[in-house]
Computed example of a mutant assay.
Amino acid sequence: MSCKPKAVLLDRDGTLVVDVPYNGDPGRVEAIPGVAGVLDGLRAAGLPLGVVTNQSGIARGLITREQVDAVNARVDELLGPFDLWELCPHGPDSGCVCRKPAPGMILNACEQLGLDPSEVAFIGDIGTDVEAAAAAGAIGVLVPTSVTRQEEIDAAPLVATDLASAVNLLTGEGRR
């Protein structure tokens, strides 16, 4: 990347907090170790931060929007404040423009921030995250977890071992 991003967007589950599928219980929210310090460093550098998350459990009837909002509030308590939240409540077959890998949520976030997508980075843990970034014209960084498939890792333009390493890739810290 030739310039540092002017904002960083992040996936929620698997990137910021331990992924608990269809979690509707704020008591089960657990920050991934080291994430809080990285986010604090980004805030100290003056970068706006946003969360972009698919929550198909709402469409599937497994969790309510109120439960998701309560979980997001807990994420804010543990890791926030975030400048914005973008959430897709739709299922995979809805054909919506917001569900990742579609670019809708990233484009909405960029509009709210007053930034061109090329000035924004999106960090996530699965292929649809980096695909959404590419579709929006943003910079995508993959931070694989145990659920990330090898083909997603192979296809990602930028891959980092953890959030701190992803930020270092974006900011040029640690580059020679």
Score class of each variant (00 low, 15 high):
S2A: 07
K4M: 14
L9T: 12
L10D: 02
R12Y: 03
D13N: 09
D13L: 14
D19E: 14
V20M: 09
Y22W: 08
N23S: 14
N23K: 15
D25M: 09
V29H: 05
V29D: 10
E30V: 10
E30I: 04
I32C: 08
G34W: 10
G34S: 11
G34A: 15
G34D: 11
V35C: 06
G37K: 12
G37I: 15
V38L: 00
L42M: 15
A44T: 14
L49M: 06
G50E: 02
G50S: 01
G50Q: 02
T53V: 15
Q55E: 11
Q55R: 10
G57N: 14
A59S: 11
A59H: 11
A59G: 10
R60S: 02
G61M: 15
G61Q: 15
I63R: 06
I63G: 02
R65S: 06
N72E: 05
R74Y: 09
E77I: 11
L78D: 07
L79W: 05
G80E: 08
F82Y: 06
F82V: 00
D83Y: 07
L84D: 05
L87T: 14
C88P: 01
G91E: 04
G91D: 10
P92V: 09
G95H: 04
G95T: 07
V97M: 09
V97E: 13
C98R: 00
A102W: 01
P103N: 01
G104K: 10
G104S: 11
I106S: 06
L107P: 00
N108W: 01
N108G: 02
A109C: 14
C110V: 02
Q112G: 05
G114W: 11
L115Y: 00
D116H: 05
V120G: 00
V120C: 03
D125Y: 15
G127D: 08
T128C: 13
D129P: 04
D129T: 09
E131R: 11
A132N: 09
A133Y: 02
A133G: 00
A133R: 02
A134H: 06
A138Y: 01
A138H: 01
G140C: 02
G140Q: 05
V141S: 07
P144N: 13
T145V: 12
T145F: 03
V147G: 09
V147K: 12
R149Y: 10
Q150K: 11
Q150T: 10
Q150D: 09
I153L: 03
P157C: 01
L158A: 06
L158S: 02
T161N: 00
A164C: 10
A164H: 09
V167N: 14
N168G: 05
T171P: 15
T171S: 15
G172F: 09
G172A: 09
E173P: 12
E173F: 15
R175W: 11
